[in-house]
Design a binder for these strands. Structure first.
Ligand SMILES: [Mn+2]
Ligand SMILES: [Mn+2]
Ligand SMILES: [Zn+2]
Ligand SMILES: [Zn+2]
Lengths: 138, 138
DNA sequence: CGCTTGACTTAGACAAAGTCCATCGTAGGA
DNA sequence: TCCTACGATGGACTTTGTCTAAGTCAAGCG
């Protein structure tokens, strides 16, 4: 049922009610929740779960590589369970909706050596911005 | 002398000591200072300048299109006077050094219609990450 | 030049997002 | 079942940024 939860088993992870609920809340496609959104949803299932635990658990999932941190604006970080298929993001400037996208080509190869300033470049993040269909029609 | 200051003249901008100092601090190439860094440098020239004024002035420069906000991490926004030549950023994962880069090709055209989810895509931000020469040799 | 006035500046309160810590509780092995 | 190291908790604290009320001043006008 919960793909993320499955991935987290068998990693020596001590299972608690809190961790299970966080993993369940975070499961799915195109999921990019903030820590407080995760907390709000977790509380409906486990009313006594604390903000600190949500932050701790999300941080551990990121360390394990099962969840990715996404920062599309200067507000809160967002947590993305789609960690095993590299992708980029498309963000609506009006409502903040986020979709996972997979551009063609490799943006890393678009950075010529003369533009690398001697850096060892290892990664690239791409954020596309625009207006989603709902906001465009409203 | 100050290219940014020159650009800001003749726009109906009421000139004050505070605005001049902020513009001077921000002038140059590969400049990506946080608001507090701008404030710290401005204070050495104009000790009574307030944090609020630095934030206000930076915000106005962004509105005028003479300065760009750059967010390479989840810490503070950075302010970039290089507003008239579109570019992307290369960031050192260790020390946070930032360089302006101009990749070849247009990342926008790398996003096929089938990956646009009906969005009207208008902009793209690219952040390359790696290790700078100084950090690599240390 | 000096007045007037609306725009600009200021200090500090406030807010959002996140971290840290001392203490309490419990998962899971012995 | 018992033990204990690891996890959870609430609250204080930090960082980054916004807002407001009151004071100040740049610049046009006479
Ligand atoms: Mn994603
Ligand atoms: Mn730049
Ligand atoms: Zn939208
Ligand atoms: Zn470095």
């Amino acid at each position: 049922m919960s793909d993320l939860l499955e991935r987290l088993r068998g990693r020596g992870w001590r299972m608690t009610a809190q961790r299970r609920v966080v993993a369940e809340v975070l499961d799915g496609d195109h999921v990019h929740l903030t820590a407080d959104e995760v907390h709000a949803r977790a509380v409906t299932r486990l009313p006594e779960i604390s903000r600190a635990t949500v932050y701790n658990t999300l941080g551990e999932m990121v360390t394990l590589g099962e969840v990715i941190e996404v920062t599309t604006d200067r507000r809160a970080k967002r947590y993305d369970p789609n960690a095993h298929r590299p992708h980029h993001h498309l963000v609506c400037d009006r409502c903040g909706a986020i979709r996972d996208v997979r551009p063609t080509g490799d943006p890393l190869s678009d950075l010529p050596a003369g533009e690398r300033f001697g850096f060892m470049v290892s990664d690239v993040e791409v954020t596309y911005r625009g207006v989603c269909p709902e906001c465009a029609s409203a």
